[in-house]
């Protein structure tokens, strides 16, 4: 017997088809974007010129064959690495401060066996702040933060942390919601106070899972560091933008190479450490 599809699924399916069709219609019909124009002779010329520039064909100064530019790029790479670590550090600290009241089973008192009237209020407040921080992309945060802080790696780290603490908080609150509540309730009924419950009950069970998420976010942050640099928040991204505006194409290639190396290293570390944590 065939299972009946729920009307919601059917509705979603058609809604998506409509959405996809209308957005393509919008792009092709209203915005008049044509693929053939994209691959016109003129554009081909531009593209070959651009890629030749990237590879340094016919240029006197080729940045990625130059020792000094390599050492400059290395300095920037270290700076970018510092920025990413700082960002994940900040967001981890904020996450740890807020994650406990943000779990649903803490708010309704099933985990700690104690009910307070303000718990739901705090829960709602923190969850709204998570949504807020999550929904605004890091680049927009960076544009705002740069108004307040001097350019450098600190505003970049803050912008990245502002976006990521919401994501980390949501993921980690879900981990707390999924923990086995029996040992923790046992602690509570044995008379442990809040701090003790936290130290001996909650943290030992959730920390490995937290660490996995933190490393996963760090990997994502590593990839985004270049983007927040675009608005002047330091690191490889800032230099990338400068070279782009000065048309120093070979420098761009060099920076892209450094960036790729960083991303691959981050990828590898987070992959390996998942086994280590287990």
């Amino acid at each position: 017997m065939k299972k009946r599809r729920s009307p919601f699924l059917t509705f979603s399916f058609y809604a998506f088809l409509l959405l996809i069709a209308s957005s393509w219609y919008f792009v092709i019909g209203i915005k008049n974007a044509s693929l053939t124009e994209l691959f016109s002779k003129e554009n081909l010329e531009y593209a070959t010129k651009f890629f030749k520039g990237l590879l340094g064909v016919g240029q006197e100064e080729i940045a990625f064959l130059n020792r000094d530019s390599w050492s400059d790029a290395f300095k920037l790479t270290v700076e970018t690495l510092q920025m990413s670590i700082m960002a994940i550090g900040f967001s981890t600290i904020v996450m740890f401060l807020t994650v406990i009241p943000a779990a649903r089973n803490v708010a309704d008192g099933t985990l700690t066996l104690s009910r307070r009237w303000y718990r739901w209020f705090v829960f709602g407040l923190i969850r709204v702040s998570y949504i807020f921080s999550r929904a605004i992309p890091e680049l927009v945060w960076a544009m705002i933060v740069i108004f307040i802080f001097k350019p450098g790696i600190l505003p970049g780290a803050i912008a990245l942390a502002l976006h990521n603490f919401g994501i980390l908080g949501k993921l980690c609150a879900e981990v707390i919601e999924d923990t086995d509540s029996r040992p923790i309730r046992n602690l509570a009924s044995a008379g442990a106070n809040r701090a003790q419950i936290l130290m001996y009950g909650v943290f030992p069970t959730v920390l490995p899972q937290f660490l996995t998420y933190i490393l996963y976010r760090w990997e994502v942050i590593m990839r985004t560091t270049i983007v927040v640099g675009f608005v002047g928040a330091g690191g490889l991204g800032q230099e990338f933008k400068l070279s782009m505006s000065f048309f120093h194409y070979t420098e761009i290639t060099l920076l892209l190479i450094c960036y790729l190396i960083l991303v691959i290293i981050a990828d590898y570390i987070s992959e390996k450490s998942r086994f280590f944590v287990k």
Partner: peptide, 13 residues
């Protein structure tokens, strides 16, 4: 990573 920031000169505008 925190040492990468120049804290002396003030970090804010």
């Amino acid at each position: 990573s925190l040492m990468g920031v120049n804290w002396q000169e003030g970090v804010m505008h």
